[in-house]
């Protein structure tokens, strides 16, 4: 075990998989010479050379589509979006090509492509750069969606994503890039997609969350335990699709109370889907309505102190948790 940042953990996953499989290529804007807009790919060009680490022009529809095409013919491209927010200009390539080609060909084709990059608000970059499209992406059968919260998860899940034979959308977080955690150096330690992780055990309330909101939820859980004598179980989904609903249901059976925390606009969000599934499959285990804390429903505001309040944060989680157990 070594202590790595989330950024370094992703880099380690990339480096190990590039070394393991010569068909893996990392491609995106500024990933090579510039070392990545967020320095995730720092040093990879020097290690693997320009054939494997490829700078693209600012041309998301072109290079994402090119990656999808190359993946049909045996390449395993890892495509970096500088921000996931830019997926909108490549959306046709993602949803009509990556997600649908297998189906439309009656199963003759598969696209082992990973599209990765940060998807988060909280950095005061306004509405165009703060999208969190995991719900939109997961709405398309044929693709998988991963949102890691910790360094160890980021590494293990990215390695699984690269080896996966289906298209995987991997959503990172610029604010988490500097977060440190213990990470295994074992190149064969993979975390399977679709497996949630109980990040904190508890008996009074289940918080179902993922991504950076895991950290907010853990911080709130600490306060709830110390100041309010409320024991909170925090479940990190880690993967949105496939979804480990069984771990959620097992927790609900134990706590009987649920709060969903997500950095998502509320309408038709990941939480909306979770709430439906929990009420449908654990109705008799619930002692109260399912609660949800989401992003305040508006485009991302720029104003730095106000953006903090638009997004889930530990204080907002705390307040929502108290309401959920009241």
């Amino acid at each position: 075990m070594a202590v790595l940042t989330y950024r370094e953990a992703i880099r380690a996953a990339l480096s190990e998989e590039l070394a393991r499989d010569e068909n893996v290529v990392l491609m995106g804007e500024e990933v090579a010479q510039f070392h990545g807009a967020y320095k995730v790919s720092e040093g990879l060009l020097e290690k693997f050379g320009p054939k494997r680490i490829v700078d693209t022009p600012i041309s998301e529809a072109g290079f994402i589509g090119m990656g999808v095409g190359a993946s049909m013919l045996g390449i395993r491209p890892v495509m970096e979006l500088m921000f996931w927010s830019f997926y909108s200009v490549a959306f046709d390539q993602i949803l009509n090509n990556a997600a649908n080609v297998r189906y439309m060909s009656g199963g003759l084709i598969n696209c082992p492509i990973v599209i990765r990059g940060p998807a988060n608000g909280g950095t005061n970059v306004g509405a165009t750069h703060s999208h969190t499209p995991e719900n939109v992406l997961a709405n398309h059968p044929g693709i998988k969606v991963v949102v890691p919260a910790t360094a160890a998860d980021a590494k293990g899940l990215l390695k699984s994503a690269i080896r996966d034979n289906d298209p995987v959308m991997f959503l990172e977080n610029t604010i988490l890039y500097g977060e440190k955690g213990e990470v295994s150096a074992d190149p064969e330690l993979l975390i399977p997609l679709g497996l949630a992780d109980v990040k904190r055990q508890g008996i009074d309330l289940t918080i179902v969350t993922y991504g950076r909101c895991v950290l907010h939820s853990l911080a709130a859980a600490e306060i709830l335990e110390n100041d309010h004598d409320i024991s909170v179980e925090v479940i990190d989904l880690r993967t949105i699709r496939p979804l480990d609903i069984d771990t959620v249901l097992a927790s609900v059976k134990k706590t009987h109370r649920v709060l969903i925390v997500e950095e998502q606009k509320p309408f038709a969000s990941v939480g909306s889907q979770l709430a439906f599934m929990i009420q449908r499959e654990a109705f008799d285990d619930l002692d109260g309505p399912i609660h949800r804390l989401a992003t305040i429903d508006a485009p991302a505001i720029y104003s730095p102190p106000v953006e903090t309040e638009q997004l889930p944060n530990p204080q907002r989680v705390l307040k929502a948790a108290l309401a959920a157990v009241a």
Partner: peptide, 8 residues
């Protein structure tokens, strides 16, 4: 190799 539900 993945776990969880793929379809809903």
């Amino acid at each position: 190799t993945s776990k969880g539900r793929l379809f809903f």
